[in-house]
Write a protein that binds this DNA or RNA. Structure first.
Lengths: 244, 244
DNA sequence: ACAAACAACTTGTATATACAAGCATGTATA
DNA sequence: TATACATGCTTGTATATACAAGTTGTTTGT
């Protein structure tokens, strides 16, 4: 087993990543259910033609993303899939929602803007010079507005970004598919605030109602490119769910 | 972030964990500052007498705990230490706060109770039979109440638990030191709610003010033992900070 | 029937090695 | 001078192997 076969390479992904994607899809699609044991590491090795360290790397990412737990001597146990809104997990909000009717509506189409004064996170010089792509979206669950979010993306090497269609597509998905940008992690601040008039109109709530506000800074596989968003969430009927 | 043994027990630890602890302490103590590069993996190998996979395991835990970032071709970069309230990390709220004056006041001392009707998480039969240890605490930052939290712990093999002193000690710390119980992760639901009268009196806010509510279920190294808590947080002056 | 011992699995830790890919800094060339 | 390239560093990916440690089921001895 010398060089990797160049043809069947899905997107040039490393092998551990490919196994990760396969197993994650199987879990999401119900091939494995809550409490099931995944095939043992050695089985995965022989099935996929990998060695144990490689398989273990795929599994350890599944662990840190909350899909499985491992127990020494027993195996890899499939976790219950998140039932709430998995926005605390990086893997993308849409994937965790399965059967729910999640729609995304663009309020302000992606467009270049200067960065706001007193931005929520500190920006690098490169980011400041490049300007930012600004967009706001409303996300609805069963036709009820849940998220109002404002995204800020530094306009660094993202050709034709402002002319794409974002309706009902995850922003992260577009970044990954069209620009090979993957979210790798980030930081966030969360607080509860009172809704102002603008929020009320978007989220269809009353002034003074409590709203969850998240400010996030996400780092990607491109060291210069970070994605910022400010998310307002009506948690009256849905709560934000996450694992850690 | 995952709780890890304190530095007293650096004997039985695996080597990668020992290196993790050393580097983490160095970062916390300012031996390395924000933006600094850690020694390269090969340097760490020769200094600590380890091989690269072992060193990489230590580093990868530092990455997933948010202490460093890595960049191919450059090195391991020390991150800015969290400045907010790191309660989204399990490692215990106290550790991330260091220089702030965080006090814990017990409102209801740990005592046995039946589980509440309609508990926030589904309980196993064993948990239901065993009954629960109930306690409530108030946590103050610079003498201002920030957290009001209610903890539920199944009374499974935790002798003398209700007779210990918890003032100004992390609940997790006691579980770890006295019972060898380590928090390994968990899940949580977060929402913004309106403060009711009871919350107002504890958190010194006005009725109707927005409050952050977190419901968490934490799993431990003891498969049967889970810890539940319901946390109310006044985010008027402090926001909840976390990495992912 | 029961309990201890064992065997056969599982994941956890660790070594040793190799090459690929990305970054920084030099030096040689245009 | 400025661009191109070469070099030597960094981390990323992957193989191959070995033994430790924990769990589970079976076998064996009493």
């Amino acid at each position: 087993m010398v060089a990797r076969p160049e043809k069947g390479q899905e997107k040039g992904m490393p092998q551990y990543r490919r196994l990760y994607e396969v197993l994650r899809r199987h879990i999401n699609e119900g091939v494995y259910n809550e409490g099931d044991l995944l095939p043992s590491e050695n089985e995965l090795c022989s099935v996929y033609g990998l060695t144990r360290p490689t398989v273990r790397q795929a599994l350890s990412e599944l662990v840190s993303d909350g899909y499985i737990s491992k127990q020494q001597g027993r195996g890899s146990i499939v976790n219950k899939l998140p039932q709430g809104i998995g926005i605390l997990s990086v893997s993308g909000t849409t994937s965790a929602l399965k059967n729910k009717n999640l729609k995304t509506r663009i309020i302000v189409k992606p467009a270049m803007r200067p960065w706001p004064e007193g931005f929520m996170f500190r920006l690098s010089d490169l980011e400041l010079e490049s300007g930012c792509i600004y967009m706001t979206r409303l996300r609805l669950l069963d036709d009820e507005p849940i998220f109002y979010d404002i995204s800020f993306i530094p306009a660094i090497n993202l050709p034709r970004f402002t002319s794409r269609s974002y309706e009902n597509r995850s922003l992260f998905e577009i970044l990954r598919r069209e620009y090979q940008v993957e979210i790798k992690g980030g930081e966030q601040r969360i607080r509860a605030i009172k809704a102002d008039d603008e929020l009320c109109s978007w989220l269809r709530i009353r002034p003074g109602d409590p709203v969850l506000h998240m400010e996030r800074k996400m780092v990607t596989n491109r060291p210069d490119l970070k994605v910022y968003s400010s998310i307002y969430c009506n948690t009256r009927f849905h709560s934000i769910y996450g694992t850690f």
